[in-house]
Amino acid sequence: MEFLNQTAQYVISGLATGAIYALIGLSFAIIFNSTGIINFAQGEFVMLGGVLTIFSITTLQLPILAAVVVAVAVTTLVGVVFERLAIRPLKDATPLALIIITIGASILIRGLVMLLWGKDTQALPAFSGNDPINFAGATLLPQHLWIFGVTLLVIVGSRLFFHHTISGKAMRACSFNRRAANLVGISVGRMVLLSFVISSALGSLAGVIIAPLTMTSYDVGVMLGLKGFCAAIMGGMGSGFGTVLGGLILGILESLGAGLISSGYKDAIAFFILLLILFIRPQGLFKKGETDRV
């Protein structure tokens, strides 16, 4: 019984962390799908979400809801500025060069936040209290429910957007073939901008809802970004269900690994699985292999 309870707790904890990875993974996938680049500044968007919310609450004295809106709006603005100044001017840059640029941007954003708000870790109060909820012999916090809820909303929302709206379909078209998309009259530039808007908003939203649990500081985005990236890779960089499953699996593996095998190897286990997937199924766990037509 004790073992069962323990395992239930490992799985629940894993799901909770996994949902965070999934959210961040999704925002990686959105930019990748419309531009073909991996935005390594994604973790910084997550960090900005948390840091700006705390700033709005403590310094601007805003109520929490307004603070969240301000944080997401400002982060989105940062995403837009980043796209306009660093991505768009380089018209014919290779994806590799663009990826390096995103790494540069991530260091820049981190540095600016450190100078503006200092190096201290800060905590955001939980949205609906800190009383643990018992569930199947395990406990979780109200904040976890927020995370699950938002993740679910985002999955449904992105599904609807990418498959049932003109803009969403246009973005997917860009990811399949930019040139062809351009030829049928889709403005690729605008789609790239839109993808940055969506993914920075999503990243900062993730940052806001996890800040009460994980706390936040200028450098919190590095590890979260990396884990979100793993989730996206496991899901084959698709913008849907695969990435979410990838995130959840990663979270559960970490948690089970830490609990049942050894906490010292927690990250090692997760990254080992990632390597394994890259070797055996480089197209991701849930994606059919692509065939190139000639």
Partner: peptide, 20 residues
Amino acid sequence: DDTYGPKDTDMTAQLTKIRG
């Protein structure tokens, strides 16, 4: 005897083990 990473954000797994 457990450890956690300096940037870890959730230690419930380790603490569940300790509880047991």
